[in-house]
Amino acid sequence: MADIVVRAEEVIKEYRMGSNVVKALNGVNLEIVRGEYISLMGPSGSGKSTLFNMIGALDHPTGGSIYIDRQNMSQLSMSQIAWFRCHRVGYIFQNYNLLYVMTALENVTLPMIFAGLSVSERNDKGAELLKMVGLGDRTHHRPDELSGGQCQRVAIARALANDPTIILADEPTANLDMTTGREIINLIKELNVRQKVTVISATHDAKMLDVSDRVVNIRDGMIERIRNRDEIEIEIGKVGGH
């Protein structure tokens, strides 16, 4: 039996806008296997980001349940949710969300502070992670002294700080040029393969399709279709053939 890391069961999310109720998610069922690279695709307002936030324990569903490692997320206390975000998930954002008052190393070690690592442990590990993403010589630079691609690399190193099970990447290439975007995708894919970390990515970027094991299309708060790797390859082949 496949090792399921994330399971969404009939997830519903409603937002109240004045007297109107907007359904951002309308009964989503999804299972994500450990070690998988999965892309959530869909136009703006499709509910893709909402689902993404639910999986990352950044928001609660109105109905249905999200299970991560067989644990129902809605049953966790605030403190357990903080622990979960700290240890189990690594977040990568479109706009990097680095703390601009801190250096690259301090940004990477921040989640380790929350995890209770000692100064020497976290400095060693932080330097090692920065080296791994190719920024070994930039540890003491602040985000305003780094390029967009370098900032995203710092964010990737930070996402790996506490050896998470899942990496959530929200449009990680949206603010980057083609080449840099490609490099970032390759880096994330490499981590996915080498460290067996599950990658869940929300994206508009067609470059992401190449590396995804599965692509989930979301429309109007529901899953429109799920394509496997072989189906994606055929489609890319078609496009390339023209």
Partner: peptide
Amino acid sequence: QHDQGQIEQQ
């Protein structure tokens, strides 16, 4: 990698 252990208190 983390084990699929219990979620702890932060």
